[in-house]
Simulated assay, not measured.
Amino acid sequence: MDISVVIPLLNEDESLKELHDWIVSVMQSNSFSYEIIFVDDGSTDSSWSVIEALSSENPHVKGIRFLKNFGKSQALHAGFIEAKGDVVITMDADLQDNPEEIPELYNMIIDQKFDLVSGWKKKRYDSVIAKNLPSKLFNWAARRTSGVKLNDFNCGLKAYHSDVVKNIDVNGEMHRYIPVLAKNAGFTNIGEKVVKHQARKYGHTKFGMNRFIHGFLDLLTIWFISRFGKRPMHLFGALGVIMFIIGFGFAFYLGIDKLYFNPDGRLITQRPQFYIALATMIIGSQFFIAGFLGELVLGSKRQQQRYLIKESLNLN
């Protein structure tokens, strides 16, 4: 199979039929073999009914329905597991991503040998204050922190070689950082393509300030995981040793000063340096223990199910 199109969605019943018809038109005009995988992330509208109708009309349409809203990352993860295509395309269901971009994205993966191609919505139709400026700030921070030189990490329109989606683990809210996850997994040939962004036709945006804040917190998480995820002791152990040495140095100084220079002076416990030394050694010990526990947790890590599927359609 040439292409799998994975579409996570939440309450997008008005746009699904139009999006489906548009994708099918592009696939047929380019003679692609394809599948469309809709992942309903706990919609409360009639989205699943629309997917059922599309599936009955078109055997290339597959559906996954979550028991409740588990998040976009989990929806992508479920779609990636089921994808059978050589190239996997992800796009949002709100018609702001243009299916006409699919053939060129496919060619960049197959002909130009990219592992991943991320869309760049250079010209946007979103609110400047509510979304554009926060996105620019977020993308700048992501580039600086991750080392992946993309202009638009948040763009839902991306193309992947099948090897990429089968070998990365998208969890939490890490869908924004799939290029970083791919790079950390060894897929370094990452490209970018300017894509057409369209104004939202139905419904309303689900972007909010909380997602912006969560994005930066996730960025810190993925930075830590990429640097120290396999060896937490390298960070916590180093900090612990440094702080313990500083505290022990203070304590040693106080002991020498009391024994040889001020034997009749104040008690050690009456000097503020004593409490600095004590606190620093305790914190250093705690850091070291945290690193040790991190190593134990890493060694005993087990796969956990992160979502529950209520229904599925046309999945083998």
Rank of each mutant, 00 (worst) to 15 (best):
I245T: 09
R271M: 13
I256K: 02
F244H: 05
L278S: 11
F248R: 07
F274S: 09
D257W: 14
F274H: 08
G249N: 07
Q286F: 15
R271H: 14
S285T: 15
A238Q: 03
F244Q: 08
I283H: 12
P272A: 12
I242S: 10
F236M: 02
H234L: 15
I245W: 10
T280I: 08
M233G: 03
R271N: 13
I245C: 13
S285Q: 11
F244A: 05
I245V: 09
F252S: 10
M281N: 13
Y253T: 15
Y275V: 12
M233V: 07
L259T: 13
M233E: 12
G249T: 11
Q273G: 14
H234P: 03
Q273F: 13
I242Y: 04
I283C: 04
Y260I: 13
P263S: 05
T269D: 14
L239F: 10
L259N: 08
Q270A: 05
T280M: 13
G237Q: 00
I276C: 05
T280A: 06
G229Y: 02
G284D: 01
F228I: 00
L267E: 04
M233P: 09
R231Y: 09
F252N: 09
S285D: 02
G240L: 01
P263N: 04
Y253P: 10
P263V: 03
M243H: 07
I256P: 14
V241R: 03
G255H: 12
K230S: 08
G237S: 03
F228P: 07
I256H: 09
G265L: 01
Q270W: 02
F252G: 14
N262K: 14
G247N: 05
P272Q: 12
F274W: 10
T269S: 07
S285A: 15
Q273I: 15
N262C: 08
Q286T: 15
Y260G: 02
I246P: 02
Y253K: 07
G265R: 00
L267C: 06
S285H: 12
N262H: 13
I283F: 08
I245E: 01
L254T: 08
L239C: 05
F274E: 03
S285C: 14
A277Q: 10
L259Q: 12
I282P: 09
G255Y: 13
